[in-house]
Write a protein that binds this DNA or RNA. Sequence first.
DNA 1: CAGTGAGCGAGCTTCCGCTTGACTT
Length: 646
Amino acid sequence: MGSKRLMIVESSTKIKTLTRFLPPDIVVKACFGHVSDLPKRELGIDIGKQFRPHWRELQEKKGTIEALKRACEASTTVILATDPDLEGEAIAWHLTRVLKLAKERVVRVAFCSVTEAEVLRALHSPRKVDRNLVDAQIARRIVDRLVGYRVSPILWRHLKSGLSAGRVQSAALRLLVEREREIEGFQPERSWLLTASFEDGKVSGMYQKSFAARDEAREALEGMKDHECIISHIDRTTEHTSAPPPLRTSTLQQEAGSRFGMSPKVTMTLAQGLYEAGHITYHRTDSVDMSPEAMQGLRTYISGTYGERYLAAQQRSFRQAPGAQLAHECIRPTSWTRTAITGGAERLYDLIWTRAVASQMARAAYDVCKLQVPYRDSHYLVSARSVEFDGFLRASGHGGDSHGSGTMAMLASLKCGQRLTLHEGTAREQLTSLPPRYSESGFVKELERCGLGRPSTYATIVTTLQDRRYCESATPSKVKQRLEVMHLREGEIAAGKREQEAPNDRGRLTVTEIGQDVYSYLDRHFGCITDIAFTRELETELDRIAAGSAKWVDIVRKFHDEFGPTVDALMKTKALEKRIPRAIREVRRIGRHPDTGQMIETCKARYGPVVKMGDGYKTVFAKIDAASMDSLDLNAAVTILNRRMH
DNA sequence: CAGTGAGCGAGCTTCCGCTTGACTT
């Protein structure tokens, strides 16, 4: 045995960075995440015996564990430097068990950025593995296992084989179902908006009142013919915009989704590549903090590259997302001078670079001009905006945009009390828009807001729901809405129609029928599991365990009592509440049989398309050809079924 | 009239959160 020290970290990419500044007697190895877990095939928890968990070494980690064991033998001290959060603490604890490390040999250190100062600071304040933190993670793990492995089998019995329930996925499913219900119950409202352009169309404004009825709008439009349009107010101000915080996992996924149409999964794969190549810091983080060294470097970079006035006067720090564990810093480039990237992640790197750099830059200033033209009991508002100082916008390469209904120069030339000549008046019909379905990245935003999932799981939550066929990407709807429009030109009103595309649902998440069925079933029998409050309460109890003011067994029991008895009761009921046969799909209701009143529908059975009538034992079936699936009408269906019955 | 489907039983599915390569649809 030499006098070497072994440091174990979770991620192998940290090894290279650490060896740059660690004392030479320290060897660094990675454990690649968890090394032990509950068994995959069974519950692995003795509910009757204080919820005792059966930990198993992960089969796929056999090689890693062996390598770590050998490294331990060659070292005197083992430094457990797993991530500074509940999972990291638990991994450290499992490592001491799996590697059979005597307490005297082990120290625990924790750093949240891989920088020399931070790591050396951590090395100088070693501690023991914190049993309270470990217990909190154990409670989390056991509650999740109990929910998933006890409730899922109920779904197999009562709905369909292979389904699943879980603390996170079932609450996430509820979010999708609720959005779907909002859409179903939505009644679009029609209204009319008035706009007017003046001075040969160089200036235009929007009337600040809308009209409910067509006739009202027409009358107001007509009244403009003889109205004297006079400027009553001119308001010129400077408005400021501050840079948003640097990115964390959820916001990275959102931005990549809305700007480049990337799915959270693709985003994470590309980010992984950037991380492994050493271009960015860790990409699974909930923090918007930046390490002090990086911050210093960035501020020097900004003043050196753009000049002192582009630097935020005060060092900016940002509000963290509620419930964030802050085990890592924000996602930022490792070097402030922009690195040339190849391999498809260029845009993602630019996004990360821009958001990080901009976060310490000065705010942008806009010159804003607003003027009012009174009409009846309200007024037209004309406005324009131009960039006075681009500030942080400069980081993105393209300076700020100037926009408005009149150019700044044109508006600046106008005087209060001046009379404007009317060029054209327009009344447009509007529809209040449907609540949009979630995009994958928009859904992640909602998950984070609700405290569901972690940076490492956001992308997989979406794929789990898709794998279970609880939701799918919507097919684009090409529905066009026809809306009326009226123009007032040279004293004449002309009415017309315009077409507007309905909001496009392409790629957005829609709940399937099986998703609806699973949700309804769970909500009826296991309401607590579909409720996001379940997760919220679990989090506060975990905090109490971590602080040493609650025991994990008591907390696990409390949560298990919320669904355990129902599981036991439903396991005893033999009757299947509702079976969804695997083979019966794409059901289309045609109508009721005129004599018997039974429902007639077409569907795909295992052996092909059929038309069927009634339910259960007395169902009448008849094969049809594939084309009739969608086209068969009630009369034809009745004829086929009548023939079948005789 | 033929052939489907009900009913039975065996064997399988499932959670959340850490990490990456080793894989073939």
